[in-house]
């Protein structure tokens, strides 16, 4: 399972970066969201993938018995998803506005402020 997810994460990163390198604003958004999803999945995998083992301390013991899936990374992902959702919402609006103001979605046309 780890292997499959590792490949998936790699593909997400690769496609995300490829999309970001394109000239279109829309593809840039897709690239950004793929990249953040890749990062989330990475944290998920790092927290170990163990099925059907709730992280409860059994009766009588005073520590978790491995194997168990660490719940903290999943809480982290939850936070990260919320943040990236909000940011992505902003980015979509910003890019729409950019399209309206500049009149194109070609990033190569938007270099008036570059030096």
């Amino acid at each position: 399972m780890e292997t499959i997810l590792a490949v998936v994460i790699g593909v997400l990163y690769a496609t995300g970066i490829y999309m970001m390198l394109r000239r279109s604003l829309v593809k840039l958004i897709i690239g950004l969201s793929l990249l953040s999803n890749g990062a989330n999945l990475l944290i998920f995998t790092v927290g170990r993938l163990t099925r059907a083992r709730a992280p409860f301390v059994p009766e009588g013991a005073d520590a978790l018995q491995p194997p168990y899936a660490d719940p903290l990374p999943q809480a982290l992902i939850l936070t990260a998803i919320v943040i990236s959702f909000g940011v992505l919402g902003f980015v979509v609006v910003l890019f729409h506005r950019a399209y309206q103001t500049v009149g194109t979605d070609d990033l190569d046309e938007m270099k008036a402020t570059d030096t």
Binding site: M20, L25, L28, L32, L35, S36, G38, A39, N40, L42, I43, A80, V87, F90, V91, L94, F95, R97, A98, T101, V102, L107, M110, K111, A112, T113, D114
Partner: peptide
């Protein structure tokens, strides 16, 4: 402002994704 922001936003989001990873 908007043209500058596109670069600012994109690169900073990229850095955030790296930091998160």
């Amino acid at each position: 402002q908007i043209e500058g922001a596109i670069k600012y936003v994109t690169l900073n989001l990229m850095s955030s994704a790296l930091l998160l990873a």
